[in-house]
């Protein structure tokens, strides 16, 4: 499974909802080598016409699907499926089995932060972002 000799130059997007697709589009426009994976083929409709990467349909909790999507040669992986547990699992696999240099994950439950502590996994918490933004706009209108 491990192959450190491979050139790590790919950007892997796991979960292509609104966020995943937007990031995939942006990465493409930056000229990155993008691989997008989702179990639902319809999700790829969110990719723009200019998207020039590859798409893979499959269950990301199955390692063979991630392997097909070149996880072993990923420079960065962005995990944005709708299920926190799937996101955590993929992040762990990316860190402990394939040692992907940059791992970004979306987690709905901020309590999950404790589970990725010390693993060099960068997390986004939509709850915290919304809460901060709410406080900001309310504070602004006072």
């Amino acid at each position: 499974m491990k192959n450190n000799r491979l050139l790590k130059n790919k950007t892997l997007i796991v979960g292509c909802g609104r966020l995943g697709c937007s990031i995939a589009n942006e990465c493409c426009s930056e000229g990155k080598n993008v691989m997008a994976v989702d179990f639902n083929e319809d999700c790829f409709a969110g990719l723009s016409n200019k998207f020039s990467g590859y798409t893979f349909v499959g269950d990301v909790t199955d390692l063979s699907v991630l392997e097909e999507a070149y996880i072993a040669s990923a420079k960065e992986i962005i995990i944005t499926t709708g299920d926190d547990n799937v996101n955590l699992f993929v992040a762990y696999v990316a860190r402990k089995i394939y040692d992907v240099p940059n791992i970004y994950v979306r987690l709905d439950d901020p309590n999950n932060a404790a589970l990725i502590q010390g693993l060099k996994i960068k997390a986004i918490y939509p709850f915290e972002l919304s809460f901060d933004k709410f406080n900001l706009i309310r504070g602004g209108s006072k």
Binding site: D84, N85, L88, F89, Y92
Partner: peptide, 26 residues
């Protein structure tokens, strides 16, 4: 499988459970 994985991870990391056993479909 992922639910079981995260449950075992939490039990071990956050609650000091001694031994975790889990079943997997795949």
């Amino acid at each position: 499988d992922c639910d079981n994985f995260v449950a075992c991870l939490s039990a071990k990391k956050l609650f000091g459970v001694k031994k975790c056993i889990c079943i997997v479909n795949n």
